[in-house]
Amino acid sequence: HDTTVHINGLRIEVHGASEEILKWIEEAARRGVEAEEIKRWVEEALK
């Protein structure tokens, strides 16, 4: 999927993410993980 995830006011563009990654992002956000940190993880995961 190409999608934009909104976390604590930060937009994260996610290209080619699976449902699993999207669920993981939402879970991390709920746990209060910094949005910048999530963004870094997602970029690494999608390389």
Rank of each mutant, 00 (worst) to 15 (best):
R30L: 15
E43F: 09
A35E: 08
E44P: 00
A45R: 07
G32F: 03
A29N: 09
V42P: 00
G9W: 02
E27F: 03
V5F: 08
G16Q: 07
E13M: 03
I7W: 04
V33A: 05
I7N: 03
E34L: 08
R30H: 11
T4H: 15
E13D: 15
G32M: 02
A17L: 13
E26T: 09
A45F: 11
R31K: 13
A45T: 10
I38E: 00
S18K: 05
K39E: 05
E44L: 11
D2S: 15
V14D: 01
K39C: 07
I7E: 04
L10C: 08
I21K: 00
H1L: 13
E34D: 14
E44H: 10
W41K: 05
E34V: 10
N8I: 06
R11P: 10
L22E: 01
T3Y: 13
G16N: 10
L10T: 12
E37F: 12
V42A: 03
K39H: 06
N8L: 05
K23C: 05
R11F: 12
I21D: 01
A17Y: 07
G9S: 04
E44K: 08
E19V: 12
V42W: 02
L46Y: 07
T4G: 09
A17D: 03
V5C: 10
I25G: 00
V42M: 04
G16C: 07
H1V: 14
G32N: 03
K47D: 06
T3P: 08
H1I: 14
V5E: 04
L22A: 04
E43G: 06
E20N: 09
A45L: 12
G32W: 02
V14M: 07
R31F: 10
E34C: 09
E20L: 09
A17R: 03
H15M: 12
D2T: 15
G32R: 01
K47T: 10
A28T: 01
R30Y: 12
E34K: 12
G32H: 04
A45G: 03
A29C: 12
L46C: 08
E27K: 03
S18E: 02
I38L: 04
G32Q: 03
K23S: 10
K47E: 07
R11G: 10
E43D: 10
K47S: 11
L46P: 00
V33E: 08
K23G: 06
A28Y: 05
V42F: 04
E44S: 09
A17H: 05
E13L: 02
G16S: 07
V14P: 03
I25R: 00
V5P: 04
W41P: 00
W41V: 11
L46I: 11
I7G: 03
E26A: 09
V5W: 03
E36M: 10
V42R: 00
W24G: 01
N8Y: 01
A35C: 08
E27N: 06
H6V: 15
K39I: 13
E20D: 12
W41D: 00
I21Q: 03
E19H: 12
G16F: 07
W24Y: 09
I12Q: 02
I12N: 02
H15K: 12
R30A: 15
E37R: 06
T3G: 15
A28E: 03
E27H: 04
R40Y: 05
R11A: 15
L46K: 03
E44N: 10
E26N: 07
H6C: 10
E26M: 10
W24P: 00
G9C: 04
E13R: 02
E13G: 02
L46S: 02
E44G: 06
E19K: 12
E26G: 05
R40W: 05
R40V: 07
V42T: 02
E13N: 12
K23D: 07
I7A: 05
S18I: 07
N8E: 09
K23H: 09
I38V: 04
N8M: 04
V5S: 05
V42Y: 04
A28N: 02
E26R: 09
R30C: 05
A28D: 01
E26W: 13
K23L: 11
I38M: 03
V14T: 09
W24S: 01
S18V: 08
V33T: 05
E36Y: 08
V33P: 00
T4K: 06
E44T: 08
I21Y: 01
H6L: 14
V33G: 02
W24Q: 03
V14L: 13
E13K: 02
A29K: 12
K47F: 07
L22V: 07
E36L: 12
I12Y: 07
A45Q: 14
G32E: 04
K23I: 09
R31C: 11
R11V: 15
V5M: 11
I12K: 01
E44Y: 10
A45E: 05
L22C: 09
I38R: 00
E34A: 15
H15A: 14
R40P: 00
E37Q: 09
A35W: 13
G16M: 08
S18F: 07
T3Q: 13
D2C: 14
L22K: 04
K47I: 07
G16A: 07
S18Y: 08
E19P: 15
E27P: 00
I21M: 09
R31M: 14
I25V: 09
R31Y: 09
V33M: 12
E20V: 10
A29W: 14
R30M: 14
T4A: 15
V5T: 05
V42D: 00
E43R: 05
G9R: 00
A45M: 13
A45P: 00
L46E: 02
H15R: 07
R11N: 12
L46H: 02
E20K: 09
G9I: 03
E20F: 12
E13T: 06
A29P: 01
A28I: 03
H6R: 05
L22F: 07
V42G: 00
E27T: 04
L10W: 04
W41G: 01
V5A: 04
R31D: 15
G9N: 04
G9L: 02
I25W: 01
S18R: 05
L46T: 05
R31W: 10
I38D: 00
L22D: 01
K47L: 10
E13F: 06
E19S: 12
I12L: 09
W24D: 00
V33K: 03
L46N: 05
E34Y: 07
L10S: 06
D2E: 13
K47A: 11
I25F: 02
S18H: 07
E37H: 08
I7D: 03
R40H: 08
A45Y: 14
H6Q: 11
L22M: 12
V14Q: 02
I25N: 00
V14I: 13
K23W: 09
E26P: 00
I21G: 00
G9Q: 02
L46V: 07
R30P: 03
H15I: 13
K39D: 02
I12T: 01
A29Y: 14
T4V: 15
